[in-house]
Amino acid sequence: MESHEIKSLLEKYMDAMTSVEEEKSLADYFRNNAVSPEFEEYKSMFGYFEDQRSVVPEKNFRISDTKKRRRTWIPAAAAAVLLLGVGIYGWQNQTPPQTSELGTFDDPEVALRETRKALDLLSSKVNTGMESVNYLNEYEQSKNVIFKN
């Protein structure tokens, strides 16, 4: 392209009247030619525009992955909180077993003695009960004597 052609195309360009094709040919011209000083700023502009077209994000964008990732930690966190709660509750209510309260004995002799004592106590109470029943028997007998005749 001749210099005067460039010049008129640039004027059109500055008025935003060029087509995309014409703008591409201007870019080609500035990329491939030594440019006279009067066009210096256009060379920078077209050079910059072209350079910017190669800017790409370094990151990959995903859809369901990001959604899933956001969702999966919620039940996990809930489970963790629940476990932690149960753990703390259990730990705080934990009391060491008290052997004396369970009534166990290490020595069999003592165990026997204590068992006898307990059984004696039980049988004496049972006998008390029996005594009152005996009294009832007495009453029955008297009644029989009276009403026999």
């Binding site: 360009y13 500055m14 008025d15 935003a16 700023e41 256009y42 502009m45």
Partner: peptide, 15 residues
Amino acid sequence: RVALSRARKQIREFI
């Protein structure tokens, strides 16, 4: 087009 023309001229002027 009007806005673009204005923008291009301002860029050129800035440089």
